[in-house]
Amino acid sequence: MKFKYSVLKRLVKHNILSHILLFVISILVLIPLFLMVSTAFKSLPELLSTDFHWIPKKIIFTNFRDAMEVAPFGRYYMNTIILVISILAVQLVTISLASYAFARLKFPGRDIIFLFFLLQLMIPPQSIVVPNYITIASLKLLDTKLAIGVVYFASAFGTFLLRQAFRAIPRDIEDAAKIDGCEGLKTVFHVFIPLAKPSFIAFALVSVTYHWNEFFWPLIVTDTVRARTLTVGLAMLTQATESTPEWTLTMAATIIVVFPLLTIFVIFQRRFIQSFMHSGIKG
């Protein structure tokens, strides 16, 4: 009895139970990832045989080559990278200007307009695809990268995040810059943006992740490989092979799509998690 009690006490003291629970749930959450990798390196005959092995009997790389042949992933990569970078670049300009005004300038209607910005968080792009599609079509932008990106050029979330960061910058620094002849736009670019770098990085990570992963809006406004992004290309590939789904090839293609972001995440995990942690909520 006494022995049992001390064991229990030790379990509690070292959080052994927490570890067991966390470990089991972590493995469960990781299973889809394991399955993706395991399938992508298998041959189709082995996949269809009755027995299942996590580690393929024979590890093959041809699925990746085949996936690249079936769909123009190089093109999709280019499109996605250009898109993600351009959205971020435009967003950085629009949100830093707006955040500066909200954080530092006084003008009639400021709070109302700020609320008007925040309301955007409640109207996610997915819910307004029908009218936005009509607008994009009438602007003759269908099937271009601009069509995918333009709806994200203003970000309420980014404006909110940066306003908080800008407000935390001491006024003294601004005044000192003023004495040195730095005013208006110059202050924004030479004082505020450099000092708010951590918030910019956080925003950049969230924005890039979101747009790299986005699927529905690009699916609707693209028709050809011209502007198609990785996620849409992946879905098209599986629809093309729907009758006899070659899961080995599909999982290889999935790895091609998720690999860059997942790798960056694992390398910079602390930064990534911090960004997502504080991006939504601080303030």
Binding site: P32, L33, M36, T231, T254, F265
Partner: peptide
């Protein structure tokens, strides 16, 4: 634990859906 639990956030839902479909 954090990496294992958080990684689904950084992969596209479209890709995740394919893995789950499989």
């Amino acid at each position: 634990y954090k990496v294992a639990l958080f990684y689904p956030t950084v992969i596209p839902m479209a890709a995740a859906a394919l893995i789950w479909k499989w």
